[in-house]
Nucleic acid binder design. Sequence first.
DNA 1: AAAACGGGGGC
DNA 2: GCCCCAGTTTT
Length: 215
Amino acid sequence: MGILEHTGWEKLLELMEAEARQKNAPVYEFRKHVSTPFRALVAVLLSSRTRDETTLEAVKRLFRRADTPEAMLALSEQEIAGLIYPVGFYRSKAKRLRELARVLLKEHGGRVPESLEELLRLPGIGRKSANVVLSSAFGKNAIAVDTHVHRLSNRLGLVSTSSPAETEKQLHRLVPEELKSRLNTTFVAFGQTVCKPVKPSCGSCPLAEHCPGAR
DNA sequence: AAAACGGGGGC
DNA sequence: GCCCCAGTTTT
């Protein structure tokens, strides 16, 4: 018997969300500031290997200077690097941001494309990032498999695979269309606050009773 | 001091 | 698939 048989998808997401909101999961504050397509694209690029609180500090400063591809391209790599403290990886991230702005202007008239294929062709944007933009900025029913989604899906026994790509496939079959986008934020929020990578709070977890990974 | 964080890109 | 990247935070 899996956890879904006890809760169903809707209830599962509700339980996770309630707990994560109470614990002030960083992703909620983060999302408030990066809801437009360009901001979402920039933020997701910067968020690689970086916590949401850290990324948020950087994008708040960055967007005051460069909230459009034109403004971004007008800055030098060094200037961008200085603005994105404290995300780390300054040279590579600054270079990618500027290149991203350049391609956006040259290939897409400065607009963020809305298809997975086009997003994947942007420099610095891979499958996870493209799906985050599709779901968070364009409201599409996309599933973005980051480490949180991958880890939680496996711990909860929703999928069983070491491959993020396979997790994405299986979730697509499993999750009701209208809940796919919501799953991204909810799983990240719950992963940040309860079902953490190290030392998960199984003792106080509302799902522990029916979670195969609880310990 | 060492491990964790995390996703893209190149091979 | 595996390794590289390379700064900050957590343990």
